[in-house]
Design a protein around this nucleic acid. Structure first.
Lengths: 244, 244
DNA sequence: CGTCGGTTTGACACCGGTCAAGTGACGTGG
DNA sequence: CCACGTCACTTGACCGGTGTCAAACCGACG
C-alpha cells in the first residue's frame, strides 16, 4: 500500500536536518512523500548487484547493508544502514549501481519512486543539495572504512566500527554512543571488516577483556575515551556539523 | 593568475560527458570557469586532513590522491585522480572533509572557487546533477576498492587496480587499457591496497611472470581477458553508461 | 663520481585464514 | 514436554600470506 507520512520519513528528515538546513515548506514536502512499505526476511537481497532501479530504499525497521560479492560467493559489506537511513539515494542520478543491498535482519523498507524525489530536488534546490550531501556522508564513511580494513588490525578496526555505530545510532535516536543494540552477526561484522567470522570472534574476545561488554546483542563501551583511543576514532568524517 | 578556458577544463568536461548529457550552453558555461593554476612538488599535501576549503582541485597535470592518515603516519589512499579529474567536488555541499589531498608526482592543479561552481549548479540543474553524479562515481570506485582490500589477496587486488587504471585512462584519453604510463611508486600502490611496499614488489613480480610487463613506468597487459579474470574485474562500477 | 629515492631480494616472525569440534539458544514437531 | 534441527557463537591446532628488518642494487641527477 502506498502511504504518505510514514514514520520512517520523519526519521529520515531528522537525519537530513543533522547536516542540512531546510525550511518548513521543504520539510513538509519530504514528510509528504509517498512510499510502499515492504517486509523482507534476514539475508534477502533487496537490490541485486548491478541491477537498475527506479526507486530508493528507506530503512523503516531492521538493518540493511550495501555489499559487493566475489565470484566465490564471499562478500564485502561497504555500508550499513540503520532505521531512518536511505540505502541508495545515489541511484537518483545514477540508477545502475555496481553493488547490491541486502537485509541483515528481518527488515521493513519504504520504497520511494525516483520520479517523486527528483521532482523535490528540482523544485527545492535546498533539498537537492541535502540529498547530495547525504550521499557524501556515505562516501566519507566508506573512505574511513577503507583505512579501517587496509591499515588497522582486526581489533582496532572492530573498535572503530563500534565507535561509529554508537555515534550514528545516538544521532538517529536509536541508543547512546556507549550503549546500543547491535543485531548484526559476527559473520556480518567480518564481511564488513574483511576478516573471517572466526577472527571476528577472537577480536571481540580481546575487546571484551579490556573495553566493552557485548551480551544480549547489546554493546556497552565502558570508557569512551580509552575506546576511541584504541580505535583511533575521530568523528570529523561523519560530517555532523550542519553545513547548509 | 586566474584564467578561463584552461585546457584541463576541456578534459574535465569530457569526463562529465562520459556519463551526463549537457547542452551547448551548459558545456560553454563549464569551459568558461575561471581557475588558478598552481604547481606542487611530489608528496605535497594540497589539502590537509580535516581542513575546510572554499575551492576545488582539478588535476591539470600529474597525479593526485585522497588519503586518510593514521596517528603513526601510515596512510591509506582512498582515491587516485588523473588529469581531467576533480579531487573534491564533494566539498561544494560539504566543505569540511575527513581526508586530505596529496600530490603523488609533480602536479599542476587548477583551483576553482566553490561559489562559481555552486552558481553553475543552481543556474543549470543538469550541471548540478552531473556534479552529483561525478561524486557518485568516486564513491562507487571506493566501494569496489574496499572489497579489493578486504577480500582479495595482494596479487588480485593489484591486478584489479591496474584494470581500473587502464579503463579510466583510456576514457580520459591518457592511454590504452592494455598499455598506459603509471607514475605511482610501489609505496603509493601499497598505500592504496593496504599492503607494505615490500609486498607490492613481490606481487608485481608474480604478475610480471604471467600477465604484464612494467618497465619505464609503463604498464602493458598482455592478455586483457586473462588479466581481468585474475582480477575479477567487471567495469560496471565505473558507471560508464551515459545516465542523464 | 657520489648521493638519493626507488626497487629488489632474503630471512624470519606473526596476524589472520582454514579446518574441525563442540557449545548453547531457539523454534518446530512428535 | 521433550527430541531434534538449525543457526550462531566459541575454541584449539595448524598453516600461509603478509609484515618486518636488513642489505644490496639501480638509475637519475648534480
Amino acid at each position: 500500500m502506498m502511504q504518505a507520512n510514514h514514520p520512517a520519513l520523519s526519521r529520515f528528515l531528522d537525519r537530513l536536518l543533522l547536516r542540512s538546513k531546510l525550511n518548513e515548506e521543504e520539510q513538509a514536502a519530504i514528510l509528504g512523500l509517498r512510499g510502499q512499505a515492504c517486509n523482507y526476511p534476514t539475508h534477502h537481497d533487496i537490490v541485486g548487484q548491478g541491477e537498475t532501479v527506479d526507486q530508493v530504499c528507506l530503512v523503516a525497521d531492521g538493518m540493511a547493508a550495501q555489499f559487493d560479492q566475489m565470484r566465490d560467493g564471499r562478500r564485502q559489506i561497504t555500508a550499513f544502514f540503520f532505521v531512518g537511513e536511505m540505502c541508495d539515494l545515489q541511484s537518483i542520478p545514477s540508477p545502475t549501481a555496481g553493488w547490491g543491498i541486502t537485509s541483515l535482519t528481518p527488515t521493513t523498507v519504504l520504497h520511494i519512486a525516483h520520479a517523486d524525489l527528483l521532482d523535490l530536488a528540482v523544485r527545492y534546490p535546498a533539498i537537492g543539495m541535502a540529498f547530495w550531501r547525504d550521499t557524501i556522508v556515505d562516501a566519507s564513511i566508506l573512505a574511513k572504512w577503507a583505512s579501517n580494513i587496509g591499515r588497522k588490525d582486526a581489533r582496532a578496526g572492530m573498535a572503530h566500527l563500534f565507535c561509529e555505530f554508537g555515534v550514528r545510532m545516538e544521532n538517529l535516536g536509536l541508543g547512546e554512543r556507549v550503549c546500543f543494540r547491535l543485531l548484526a552477526t559476527q559473520e556480518q561484522l567480518g564481511e564488513a571488516l574483511g576478516v573471517t567470522p572466526v577472527h571476528v570472534n577472537r577480536s571481540l574476545k580481546a575487546l571484551r577483556q579490556d573495553y566493552i561488554s557485548f551480551e544480549n546483542r547489546t554493546v556497552r563501551i565502558h570508557d569512551w575515551g580509552a575506546f576511541t583511543a584504541v580505535a583511533e576514532f575521530d568523528p570529523t568524517y561523519l560530517l555532523l556539523k550542519r553545513q547548509g
